[in-house]
Simulated scan of single mutants.
Amino acid sequence: MLIDKKIEIGFLLFDGFPIACLTSIVEPLRAANEIAGQEAFCWSLVSELGQKVKSSANIGFEADRDLSDCQSIDILFLLSSPVAGFGDPKQGHGALRMLARHGTTLGGISGGVFPLVRAGVMTGRPVSVHWCYEAAFEAEFPEMDARREVIVFDTNRYTAAGAAAAFDLALHLIEDRLGSDIAHEVACWFQHPMMRGEGVRQQVPNVRHSGSGEKLPPLVAKSVELFAGSVGQPISIAEVAQQTGVTPRQIERAFKQATGLSPSHYYRAMRMKAARQMVVYTKDPIPEIAAAIGYSSVAPLVTHYRAAFGLSPSEDRRRINRFRVEDNAPLPSV
């Protein structure tokens, strides 16, 4: 299949972006060109002003162009950490909105969904949000339709949750452009077992498991789902029991057997993980974070946070800040 026009893709990089997300989409596109024997895809690195950008691993990347020189680009993906942003937000956001008006497809990979949404080009659209950024995203954008699906397509907006999802996204682009046979061969080149699409949910680690590799039992999995939906408005074990049609004692036994934790301790660990996302990836005051995960005061948050992570939320935030690559680019990012 000969392609008469190649697809030009830009990667708008911010300091602190994860390299894996870049290579996971570029490498399959490169392989597709080789297999097809033609340049079906081309790409370039973009930064706000054409400046050099440092990744989360502190490796520098030279930009091929600046954001004002992207009119010829068909698809522009944003790659960043959650708190990265433009040096001149008004101009940067305006440039993205102009590209959107002119028909450029826009997307965000992993933390790149944060500056994408801040630009105002995702209003009314669903967004794939990596599970480790979920609490921070919902705290900053409570009105957005944040989803745990690995990829979300919405007309000319593409979002993907992490590096493996970026690979899946590249396979979809290849399939649309060059057909399923070449997409399958690319997947085989990299031993990528399957191309995940819309509706596939992210794998999320358990707080603690037996290590057998088995999934959580249905009762425990359903309870965890209820916990996850009630991080900010705490739900009692009695309420979970009522909604699952069992007794609190049955839930206690099921959790102990499957996770080694009581359901209340498992739930607290989930809430602490959500709190830590907000500590690390937002600038919200600690009292607001406490309220966001259902605490009426800071004191119990500090007690439980210290028990979980060995230091207070404020100490943890100061520690993370010492690892910042630049002002708005913290580590880690995924």
Rank of each mutant, 00 (worst) to 15 (best):
L2K: 12
L2G: 15
K5L: 07
K5Y: 06
G10D: 10
L13E: 08
F14C: 11
G16E: 02
G16K: 00
I19T: 04
C21D: 03
L22G: 15
I25H: 00
E27N: 06
L29H: 04
R30H: 10
A31T: 15
A36N: 15
Q38P: 02
A40C: 01
S44T: 10
V46K: 02
V46A: 08
S47K: 09
G50L: 04
K52H: 06
V53G: 11
D64C: 04
S68N: 06
S68H: 13
D69A: 10
S72Q: 09
D74C: 02
L76C: 05
F77N: 02
F77M: 10
L79E: 06
S81H: 05
P82V: 01
D88W: 01
R101A: 04
H102R: 10
T104F: 03
T105Q: 03
G107V: 14
G108F: 04
I109L: 05
A119H: 08
M122T: 13
P126N: 01
S128P: 03
V129H: 07
V129S: 05
H130K: 06
H130D: 00
Y133C: 08
E138D: 07
E140F: 02
F141Y: 14
E143M: 02
E143G: 06
M144T: 15
R147L: 08
R147Y: 03
V150F: 05
I151K: 04
V152G: 13
N156F: 07
R157C: 13
Y158G: 02
A160I: 00
A163G: 02
A163F: 01
F167I: 12
A170N: 02
A170F: 02
L171V: 09
L171M: 09
L173H: 00
I174N: 03
E175M: 03
L178W: 11
S180R: 12
A183L: 02
V186W: 11
W189V: 15
F190Q: 09
Q191A: 08
M194I: 14
M195Q: 07
G197T: 15
G199S: 08
R201F: 04
V207N: 12
S210M: 00
G213I: 12
V220Y: 12
A221Y: 12
S223A: 13
V224F: 07
A228F: 10
A228C: 14
G232R: 00
P234W: 05
S236Q: 10
E239R: 12
R249S: 10
I251L: 14
E252Y: 14
E252M: 12
A254W: 04
A254I: 06
K256D: 12
Q257N: 10
A258Q: 09
A258D: 10
T259M: 06
T259C: 07
G260Y: 00
S262M: 03
H265Q: 15
H265K: 15
A269Y: 06
M272S: 15
K273A: 15
A274I: 11
R276D: 12
Q277D: 13
V279H: 14
T282Y: 02
P285S: 09
G294P: 07
Y295W: 01
V298C: 06
Y305A: 07
A307V: 11
F309W: 09
F309D: 08
F309K: 04
G310K: 00
P313S: 09
P313V: 07
R317K: 09
R317M: 01
R317V: 14
I320T: 11
F323Q: 04
P330W: 00
P332V: 00
S333W: 04
